[in-house]
């Protein structure tokens, strides 16, 4: 007879087993959830586009519309966006596509636990899978947009830099940061629904504060703001890698990367330790 696993449930179990043992438990649990994450991702993906006529095309339509509005505002002189070193539509589309990983990812992840319905309260499974699977939606949408971006590259006759192949690596800290914040917010949203509204407010606000649809300004208040905002470093870094191949602000990108990793680790741990509370409160 095969050895049966013995499971013990007691209050504050993971605080009692000690620091390193609990990190190990976290890693094991995450590794064991890989198949579930994939399944949940597929489920969300299929379900999302099943009842929609345009389906995944929406992933392209959304940024195109936003960029279109900005092109219009720019051309009509309402906004003065300034000079970009590649054609503006391409510049803006790259920016908004990268930024959408954050905005779409954050709204999907923060809603993932409360949106999962009765399964959270009725089935025992690693809830982190829901959050990661939700993040997957944002990544897929980005990949679809990437096709459009390369299409625009050819139209405008701009050659992307060879370093574009490093994009997945460059995006990693950005994704980790989003996931980290998302993990924390999904947890908090379980007890405080206000989070969902705040997320949509802040992602809209940040879209205008960050150099997404316009090049980083060289003077003014936004310069200071951008210097201390890890998001602007990460977005600018990814865009640089795609277009020119050299990071304008390598130091900034580095600290933003370290910051992202720390946020992710802390958030992951908080999530793991508080996970049993979710089923009680949702």
């Amino acid at each position: 007879m095969k050895a049966e696993k013995i499971t013990v449930y007691e209050p504050d179990k993971f605080i009692k087993i000690g620091f390193f043992a609990s990190w190990k438990a976290m890693a094991v649990s995450l590794f064991m959830s890989r198949e579930l994450i994939w399944r949940l991702f597929l489920r969300d993906f299929k379900a999302k586009y099943r009842q929609s006529f345009l389906g995944i095309l929406w992933a392209i339509l959304n940024p195109v519309i936003t960029v279109g509005i900005f092109i219009f505002l720019n051309r009509s002189g309402i906004l003065n966006i300034g000079e970009t070193y590649i054609p503006y539509p391409l510049f803006a589309l790259i920016g908004i596509s990268i930024y959408s990983i954050f905005s779409t990812g954050l709204s999907a992840t923060s809603n993932s636990i409360i949106g999962a319905g009765p399964m959270v309260v009725k089935i025992n499974f690693p809830k982190i899978s829901l959050v990661i699977a939700a993040m997957g939606q944002a990544i897929v949408e980005f990949l679809v947009r990437l096709i459009l971006i390369f299409f625009l590259f050819t139209i405008y006759g701009v050659t992307p830099c060879w370093s574009s192949i490093l994009l997945p690596v460059a995006l990693l800290p950005f994704i980790l940061l989003t996931l980290g914040i998302g993990l924390f917010l999904s947890l908090l949203a379980g007890v405080l629904r206000d989070i969902i509204h705040l997320v949509s407010f802040f992602t809209t606000l940040l879209l205008f504060l960050l150099p997404v649809l316009y090049p980083a300004p060289q003077a003014g208040i936004l310069v200071t703001l951008n210097r201390w905002n890890p998001l602007s470093h990460l977005i600018a870094g990814c865009r640089d890698i795609l277009i020119s191949g050299n990071l304008f602000d390598a130091a900034g990108f580095l600290w933003a990367t370290i910051f992202s990793i720390i946020v992710f680790l802390v958030s992951w741990r908080i999530f793991f330790l508080s996970e049993p509370r979710i089923a009680e409160r949702v």
Binding site: I6, T7, V121, I123
Partner: peptide, 15 residues
């Protein structure tokens, strides 16, 4: 089932 954790006491499950 482990969906909730007890506030007091201990549960041991085999299998």
């Amino acid at each position: 089932n482990g969906i909730l954790l007890p506030d007091k006491g201990k549960i041991e499950i085999q299998g």
